[in-house]
Amino acid sequence: MKKKIAIQGVHGCFHEQAARLYYGDDIDVLECLNFEDLFVGLERKEAEGAVMAIENTVAGGLLPNYALLHKYGKQIKGEVFLRIQQNLMALPGQRIEDIREVHSHYMAIAQTREFFKQFPHIRLIESEDTAKSAADIAREGRMHTGAIASVLAAELFGLEVLQESIETHKQNFTRFLIVDDRIEVVENDINKSSICFTIPHKKGRLSQILSIFAFYDLNLTKIQSLPIPGKEWQYFFYVDLKFDDYAHYREAMNAVSPLVEDVKIMGEYKSCC
């Protein structure tokens, strides 16, 4: 029986590509309109696991998704990095010169505007989703209309890729988190942790915490702060730590515990790179 995985977006989107990269191709996807619906689907047991984007090398972090992880109390069980390759596609038998308009998500359009400067006759139109744009063209048989989407979308909906990799920045990667209660990560495999905490308003407190992480040879790969609703000028700090020695990591967590408040381990898992 195929595993049901919740994704943000529709069949053929980059979230599905990431899900296939982690779980393999033998999955079904639960399409979710927004990221909170991922967690709702898990709560209702409509899906066994979820794949959720958390940061991009071009656009930065998806800050609200940290808050969703904290709100629903789900544990991170893994991660996957996917190169985001934007492709121009249309119904078979057309050339780029035949295309009059191209539809896609605003982010995909922003990442490919430089490419379209050489085709001033093409009008760029924002839509709600990259893969849905491709699906709509296929379903409605739209000639002279293109979409910017993944190669997976082209394969699924029978479109022809007119030009591969049209994104301006080729080193464009998105990091996706795996949220799946059924996955058990054995201690020997754990080399990364995602934690969150608050700190009291005391001079130098954050510096002390970071010094402890450094002392125990932990690599701080990400630190992000988000305001706490209803608490003026107070913040949650979201931190990703990489390490070679799990025991040192636990010692570091014990050492920082007296310095922080509301500390929560959001996941201990194996880094994908």
Rank of each mutant, 00 (worst) to 15 (best):
Q111F: 06
Q111C: 04
H121S: 13
H121M: 05
I122H: 09
I125S: 00
D129N: 13
D129R: 09
T130V: 05
A131C: 10
K132Q: 10
S133M: 06
A134E: 04
A134Q: 06
D136W: 13
A138L: 08
R139C: 02
R139W: 06
G141C: 07
G141N: 06
G141M: 14
H144T: 04
T145A: 13
I148F: 03
V151P: 01
E155G: 02
L156I: 14
F157V: 02
L159M: 12
L159P: 01
V161W: 11
Q163A: 14
T168E: 08
T168W: 00
K170I: 13
K170W: 01
Q171K: 11
T174R: 05
R175A: 03
R175Y: 00
F176Q: 06
F176Y: 15
V185S: 04
V185E: 06
V185M: 06
E187L: 12
D189Q: 11
I190L: 04
K192V: 07
K192G: 13
K192N: 10
S193H: 02
S194V: 07
H201G: 01
K202E: 13
K202V: 15
K203W: 12
R205A: 09
L210E: 03
L210F: 14
I212E: 08
F213Y: 14
D217W: 05
N219V: 11
T221R: 13
